[in-house]
Amino acid sequence: MTRLINNEDGSDLMVSDAAGQIALPAPTLAPVAVPEVGTGKPARHGKSRWPARLDLLQSATGLFLALFLMAHMFFVSSILISHDAFYYVARFFEGEFFLGKPYPILVSGVVALILTIFVAHAWLAMRKFPAGYRQYRAFVAHKNNLRHGDTSLWWLQIWTGFALFFMATIHLYDMLTQPALIGPYESADRVWTGNMWPLYLMLLLAAELHASIGLYRLAIKWGWFDSAKPNLSRRRLRWAKHGISAFYITLGLVTLAAYVDLGRAHVDKAGERYVPTHLSAPAATGKH
């Protein structure tokens, strides 16, 4: 490749100065491929491929978690249909309909996978956090000056993501260690008698906001759903984002309210396992 000026040490125009502008050295191109010692394979002296892979991985893990979250919300909200509906969803994931009897360890397995992807995503996304006070101040000042929707949304994403480090971990650990205790009474008791509802409330808001902003950002970042006019596609994506946030937060709040309601009604018998309608003799329990 040709170079405009033959100055091997970078441009003398680019020396750092009193205003704090840092030197931007021109990269040395046309690397000479020297055979690696021992293997005889020519070594590549170029840039590492890992920034690209890490960027892809961050997007892929985020996409997976967001889609999982959406599916998860539908499973959990089956309590709104009936107690039995949620009971069967829970047994389904324990493999009862394939293996003949429930194996809660399967749920632990799925949770372990989610936890792994969650930790990977947190680690990858953390690279983008402001590092140190100077970067933090610079971004906050910039955000407040610019008053720009997408810039401010990112700040919300940072903080909801930060909150998820802790809140989602508590929930995931709970599910990992007690996979058998997922059912209408079991979950409702956890929510109310187990005092988990404040956590679930905050977790719901943080997770749904983080996921919908993240999906929106993914579409922008990789150019999905592009139209001929970028501003038009962006407007559509923004509406989709608002819609997803509103729908899932509403569904989540209603679902949480249903569990709180059930948990309060069941407080005297907290710890009792749920028995589905077709197994419970109506005369014995008096309900269902």
């Binding site: 990269p27 920034p51 890490l54 960027d55 720009h148 810039t151």
Partner: peptide, 23 residues
């Protein structure tokens, strides 16, 4: 060749798609 120039976190993979530039 372009990857050598902008294929890192100072280049295209550093962009967080905040779109301040675009707007």
């Amino acid at each position: 060749d372009f990857y050598e120039l902008v294929g890192d976190d100072d280049g295209v993979f550093g962009c967080m798609s905040l779109l301040g530039c675009h707007d």
